[in-house]
Amino acid sequence: MSATTVRTRTFVQALNEALDISLARDPNVYLLGEDIAEMGGDFGVTRGLWAKYGAERVRDTPLSEAAIIGTAVGSAMVGLRPVAEIMFADFLGECYDQLVNNAAKMHYMFDGQFKASIVVRTACGGGFGGGPHHSQSVEGWFLNVPGMVIVAPATPADAKGLLLASIENDNPILFLEHKALYRLKGEVPEGHYTTPLRKAAIARPGKDVTVVATMKMVHEALAAASELEQEGIDVEVIDLRTIRPYDAETVLASVHKTGRAVVANEAPKLGGLAAELSATISEECFRALKAPVVRVAGLDAPIPFSLVLETYILPGKKQVVEGIRSVLRA
């Protein structure tokens, strides 16, 4: 076993390290996106990489989301490993066709003759007054698309390990970075390592109730679990990490053990990740369940600007606590 040094890093720094390592290790890796080069990206994730690797491999683009994804896919067709940045996930509508109809289907419809080995990093999620077009949770937009991979880290260590694994994977990967986590600090191992895709993590073991969450909601769930611990309620928190295709085995094993499940997702309830998880748990664990699955999700509205309104819309620790109480009551 090699002794790995573990340091404290922010989520942004962890992502930056993953990109740096990838660029250094593999000449086929390059980055493209708006203002990612000299400026280092809107959130600083690519800071310093342009100076280190040059404008060819850390490439500024015009405001052309479809062309950014098209370029990424086309270059992957001939063997490059692009990492594209779409500044805000809300703009994925601009390149939805490129992702859904081209990247996600290419390997399948052309019978394995091409691989769309691309990573699309994007900042998602609300909580900072970004308003209707800078705050959305978009996983539901892509959940129904076979061929798409959706990765969503919750910690700095996973941000780095999952980004490295994503860049090295041969599938088209939508890599979601929740804006509220960018400044989060955590222990991050030095150097190269990968965190397996499609493998959930048990963020907190427990025996009374399972909470399945992603990204920021993992932290809301952990906070809820700490609060309920005072009352002797033992909550297991599962961080899904990869949203599509997801690790049903870990989720179902946990629910079989606890008999109670809450799924927590920031997006609206209707047709979203919470709905999918709830349906699968209900189908697969019906006999083990002591109560109906509870979905903790965003309210069914666009994300409003005023923080009072936004706070009302988005789920947090309070809603997770209420969700847990309600599955325990039933």
Partner: peptide, 28 residues
């Protein structure tokens, strides 16, 4: 499609490959 003969595939969403072609060209 058949990349061995240079055929990189039609896309029935007309012209979506106007974007894809950029990436092939960039790689070259």
């Amino acid at each position: 499609a058949n990349p061995r003969v240079g055929n990189f595939g039609d896309n029935a969403v007309e012209g979506s490959y106007m974007a894809t072609v950029l990436g092939v060209a960039l790689a070259w």
